[in-house]
Amino acid sequence: MISTSGAGALLIIACMALVTLLVRFGGVFIMGLIPLNRRVEGFINGMAGSVLIAVLVPIALQADTAGRLALLATAGLMFWLRKPMPAIALGIAGAALYRAV
């Protein structure tokens, strides 16, 4: 236990910042120790897309109707135009509109 009075709080924050920075550097550092071959490249490629999906899963699960509508609109426009910015804009506007009415 560390007291949060005076310098204690700053020490805690510094430790958190250090841990987070090491995690930001860690992925690239660890990959530097592993020889890059087809399997490792396949792993990285598979991981890239599924991290995106994994971030999305709780957002989609916890979203209300307006939120799910936003995701559907974004997906629809991405399939049609393949342009992220209009797709996101339509999704956000859809959620805002649904909640307004």
Binding site: I2, V19, T20, G27, I30
Partner: peptide
């Protein structure tokens, strides 16, 4: 009072996804 070790373990666990994100950019 703040329990430092549990706090840092929590920080590490929550931010561990950054390890994966960094690795994909390698």
């Amino acid at each position: 009072q703040v329990p430092l070790v549990p706090l840092l373990v929590t920080t590490l666990a929550i931010n561990a996804r950054m390890l994966l994100m960094g690795a994909t950019l390698y």
